[in-house]
Design a protein around this nucleic acid. Structure first.
Lengths: 336, 336
DNA sequence: CTGAAAGCGCTTACAG
DNA sequence: CTGAAAGCGCTTACAG
């Protein structure tokens, strides 16, 4: 199997044409006769030639690599999200002749990303998360690296793509209110994450759209520990809350644990909802009402956008993808 | 910020030396005067020159990329494992001047890996999982790509590194038996995974080492659905099983759900153990007895091995890493 | 339609 | 110790 790698020069020599011609036959650029073209292509096919992408890149000042910026300080609940994004991105990139190079960043160091950029190993990048103070994003901007952000940001200069968390959360919350919920609470994670803010906005939208709703609502943000959730849930129970909405499945899992401990029946005594359907709670009983996004598609589209930018095509500054509200057993039947 | 990239030629010209000299100053290879060396280095420092790794690679027939082969058809429970591996690998690679390029493969297609190899985008690869019939592994072997496998395989030709699942499971099972368990059952996933086989061996070791143990044991393999677990657990309960060991946290989660449904108390009525501590059950109550591995270290070491291979150093064919048995509330106190 | 030549940014024998 | 030159495997004006 260890055949020496063919080069464009070998082929040219073998076929008695110039390297230029071979190159043109392959790339399809420049004028070239049908005859010769076919002859070259046939030879290539037969001998399993495949061009050295690195050399090609050097000549064209490209790498055919895209940088995937992944947080190293992730929360376990986010993993399926990153994984699916990666899948979508990787698939599309591959289909378009690009490879994906990863850079793991943490809140206090982005050296891997810096390396990829200063070493000129990537043509562009995809950010898989957006923060309020986003060091990787700032770095990419400062260095003129084309990129798209998976997630939202107020900076309209950055090309961004996201699921429509706001509308999704608004719709789900609305269903709950319309279903008759009078006492509702929202538990969320770090406000540093833009997505937390968007989910909150959606939640608030539902009330704004229903000025006649006469119940009470409470919001707890920046929660990230099980014990905090515990305390909150206890408090809520003492106040006879009817529905606890969690911003993600991790928090929702904590809520469920606490309820289970206290032998509180879901949904009979309290209804439970998650704003994100990560399949982390997939086999929980009862099944949890939540919102579902097509994350692989999100990744695919993000990659598509980046490749368009690299091809110098115009792309929309902001792209929003759809969602699906999944009503399950953890909420009583409400009308939709 | 948009300064045009410096090249070795620019520096040579600026300093009135040859490109050869500049190259030598940077690489440290070949004889060069201390004086000139310092002069070049100073200039580089001052002007933030960083070499074009791709060009360097072309000249040296290297890419300074390592391929990370990731399964696309993962089970959610494996995600933290892959993530942590990636972290370890990525960190070390980065520190050594390498980048990590991902190839997602599924059981029926390895085209991304093929692309990376035929396009000569990687110098070597790391497999993050080993299967009995391992297509990616076979492909790498056939094409003479240096690689190390994270996980075990019977093929002693392949450089492999793994946690010592067998000993770990043996030790944990042993503790249970020594603690007085008389009726024990093991539930595991696909035998196609080598790790499943190794865990099973460890389990069996414990009995072999205790010929006087007079209890009964049962083994259920190739289980991957919650409903299957359900059926098994019901059967086991009817037989008054004392301890249910799961091979991973997903299965263990299923077991716990079933027990919870049937209002069976853990550990009072039945003890529960997981052979893998993925932090998926981290906030479960009661805390689950299990085995813990340092996965990031595993990734780091795997990468280290690969880089040694690329440097043509000798490496051991098989490396086994340690583990920690964590006795928690889900088992009654047993002596260790 | 085709080719000779220069160039992408490095490295590395070979000579001095 | 230093440099001119060829080479890594491609692309791409420029001429014909």
């Amino acid at each position: 199997m260890e055949e020496k790698n063919l080069t464009i020069g070998d082929i040219a020599q073998e076929l008695g044409v110039s390297k230029t011609t071979v190159s043109r036959a392959i790339s399809g650029k420049g004028r070239i006769g049908q005859q010769t073209r076919q002859r070259v292509l046939a030879y290539i096919e037969e001998h399993h030639y495949s061009p050295n992408v690195v050399a090609k890149g050097l000549a064209q000042n490209k790498t055919f690599n895209i940088g995937l910026v992944l947080p190293g300080d992730y929360n376990i609940v986010e993993l399926p999200f990153f994984q699916k994004c990666m899948m979508g991105i990787s698939r599309l990139a591959s289909a378009r002749g690009y490879d994906v190079l990863i850079s793991m960043v943490t809140s206090d160091q982005i050296t891997q990303l810096e390396r990829a950029v200063t070493n000129r190993k990537i043509d562009g990048a995809i950010l898989t998360r957006t923060l309020a103070e986003d060091a990787p994003m700032q770095y990419l901007k400062d260095n003129g690296v084309p990129f798209v952000a998976l997630g939202s940001t107020d900076d309209r200069q950055v090309i961004q793509i996201d699921n429509d968390h706001r509308s999704a959360c608004g719709e789900l919350t609305g269903s709950l209110l319309d279903g008759g919920i009078e006492k509702i609470a929202l538990i969320g994670g770090s406000e540093e994450y833009i997505v937390t803010r968007n989910r909150l906005r959606g939640f608030e939208d539902a009330f704004r759209e229903r000025p006649d709703w006469g119940g009470t609502r409470q919001v707890f943000l920046n929660i990230d520990k099980a014990c905090e959730v515990d305390t909150i849930v206890e408090k809520l129970l003492s106040e006879q809350v009817e529905c606890i909405v969690s911003m993600d499945d991790y928090l929702c899992g904590c809520v469920l644990n606490t309820l289970q401990q206290r032998q509180i029946a879901v949904p009979e005594q309290v209804q439970v909802v998650s704003f994100y359907d990560s399949s982390m709670l997939a086999n929980r009983i009862p099944a949890i009402t939540s919102i579902r996004f097509d994350v692989e598609e999100l990744g695919r589209k993000a990659c598509e956008l980046l490749l368009q930018i690299l091809d110098e095509e115009e792309v929309p500054a902001r792209t929003l993808l759809g969602y699906e509200v999944r009503m399950r057993e953890s909420t009583k039947s409400v009308r939709r």
